[in-house]
Design a protein around this nucleic acid. Structure first.
Lengths: 172, 172
DNA sequence: TATTGTTATACTCTATAACTATA
DNA sequence: TATAGTTATAGAGTATAACAATA
């Protein structure tokens, strides 16, 4: 089962409506998991407008952020962190390198591994992308108080099978 | 850009870790959008265990819930509601029908449209699936208070470009 | 002319397996 | 033997366009 990277956009279609008037959603409205899915669809329609002009995709953007914050990280570790396989990571890095945004250097202590570093050009683009992404994300939480925004992120980080659901912490 | 139905599972890989120790996530930790993505990856790894034995997928399950709650809904409307294209909906309905879980009847007032109705067998399976899904969802929010659970769903429903972000309502 | 369901097609993303070079 | 990166391949899911039947 694929983890939906939200569905491919239907360019000429009307935007996704989370609650179509007159339709009863039954248990779906009771499921946190379905709320996540719904939110993701709505978000991705918008995300496209920011990513595409920059020749970026969500995994490409995430990778650049992580390489900047962890210079010299190796590909396999990066793949683990963003949750893709190693082969998929090769394609992501290939693209970023073809744009001149990063270099693959030989790892100092391990001849098998790649040492990933952003170029000046890559850092410049990333700076722009980060501003745009932060701006977009703030627009998504426009009506939220800062407390609500933090609460949402914290609850999302706790949601899920194993690492989440620790009764001790109470972010709300 | 595709809306990620979360990534295909790597069966022999370790489960997705949302915060790998020693890795700095930079702005990613500030983005509600990335928190959504992270949560979805974690969720889908688990979802698989419930869906597969029942010959279900998330869109199939959602479709059945919606057909039960809105008997006679037409395919195109169903597609709009769950956020897929009409061709994708055909495949979903085909499968549900092949399992004997629903019938396509001719719509009373419109000879073009299909009137979708669950069979007794479909209703029985759906009843089982709903119990399992609710149970799974509760496990994902195990450490949450009921207030936190509702808050998460409400905030997720407000997150996004257009319909969300209404300053008036304060669910937290 | 527009819409519903359908089919055919292409594209994207992903997993899996196998290869190489290092360890 | 095991691991990092790579390549090749197949599969799932989706969008797009075009078609028939009906409105």
């Amino acid at each position: 089962m694929r983890v939906p990277r939200p569905r491919q956009l239907r360019r000429n279609a009307s935007p996704f409506e989370r609650h179509v008037p007159g339709v009863r959603y039954g248990v779906l409205d009771e499921l946190a998991g379905y709320a996540v899915r719904r939110a993701q669809i709505a978000i991705y329609e918008d995300l496209d407008h920011v990513m595409t002009p920059l020749q970026l995709t969500p995994p490409r953007f995430s990778s650049m952020v992580l390489i900047e914050a962890n210079p010299g990280i190796r590909q396999s570790d990066l793949a683990t962190v963003i949750g893709v396989g190693r082969p998929a990571m090769v394609a992501i890095i290939d693209h970023l390198q073809s744009q001149g945004w990063l270099r693959r250097e030989v790892h100092a202590g391990d001849g098998r591994a790649n040492h990933l570093v952003l170029t000046r050009k890559g850092l410049a683009l990333l700076a722009r992308a980060k501003v745009m992404m932060l701006d977009l994300d703030r627009r998504w939480t426009q009506g939220f108080s800062e407390h609500e925004r933090r609460t949402l992120i914290t609850l999302l980080d706790r949601l899920g099978p194993s690492p989440a659901a620790k009764p001790g912490e109470d972010p709300a």
